[in-house]
C-alpha cells in the first residue's frame, strides 16, 4: 500500500510533466520535466516520504527491465541497415570513448581547480 501511494505521486508528476510538454510544445519528455518538478518540490518541502522513497527505489532498480523491449528491436531491424554497420560501430565505440574521456578530463580539471582556489581563499 505505501509503495502504491508513492507510485501514485510519481505518476501524477509524470502526467504533470506531460501536460507541460504538450501545452508549451517542449521538446523535452514528460518524464524529465516530472523529474525536475519532483526535485524542485522536494527541495521546497525539505523531506521525502517513506512511500515515495520506496516507490522510487523499486522503479529505479528495474530500470533495465523497462528499456529491454526497446533494446530487442535492434535485432529485428538489423538488415535494414546492412552495409552501414561499420560506420555505426566505429562511431559508437570511438565516439563514446572520446566523449567519456572529455567528460572525465573536464570534470577532473574543473573540480581540482575549484579545490585549489578554495584552499587559497
Amino acid at each position: 500500500m505505501p509503495m502504491l501511494r508513492g507510485f501514485l505521486i510519481l505518476v501524477l508528476f509524470f502526467l504533470f510533466g506531460e501536460a507541460l510538454r504538450l501545452v508549451f510544445l517542449l521538446p523535452v519528455s514528460g518524464g524529465v520535466l516530472g523529474m525536475i518538478g519532483m526535485t524542485l518540490t522536494l527541495m521546497v518541502k525539505g523531506s521525502v516520504s517513506d512511500s515515495l522513497a520506496a516507490a522510487s527505489q523499486g522503479l529505479i532498480s528495474v530500470l533495465v527491465l523497462l528499456i529491454m523491449p526497446g533494446v530487442v528491436g535492434v535485432f529485428f531491424t538489423a538488415d535494414q541497415f546492412s552495409g552501414q554497420w561499420l560506420a555505426v560501430a566505429v562511431a559508437l565505440l570511438v565516439g563514446t570513448f572520446l566523449s567519456v574521456l572529455t567528460t572525465l578530463l573536464l570534470m577532473k580539471c574543473l573540480v581540482q581547480g575549484r579545490n585549489r582556489s578554495q584552499t587559497n581563499d
Partner: peptide
C-alpha cells in the same frame, strides 16, 4: 515483433514514472 512490442508497452509505459523517480536520489 510488432505484436511483442505492443504487449510490452505495459512495461515501457513505466519508463515515464521511473524517470520521475530519479528526482528523489537527486534531491537526497
Amino acid at each position: 515483433y510488432a505484436r511483442y512490442q505492443d504487449g510490452a508497452r505495459w512495461l515501457t509505459v513505466l519508463l515515464g514514472p521511473a524517470t520521475v523517480a530519479l528526482g528523489i536520489p537527486l534531491y537526497q
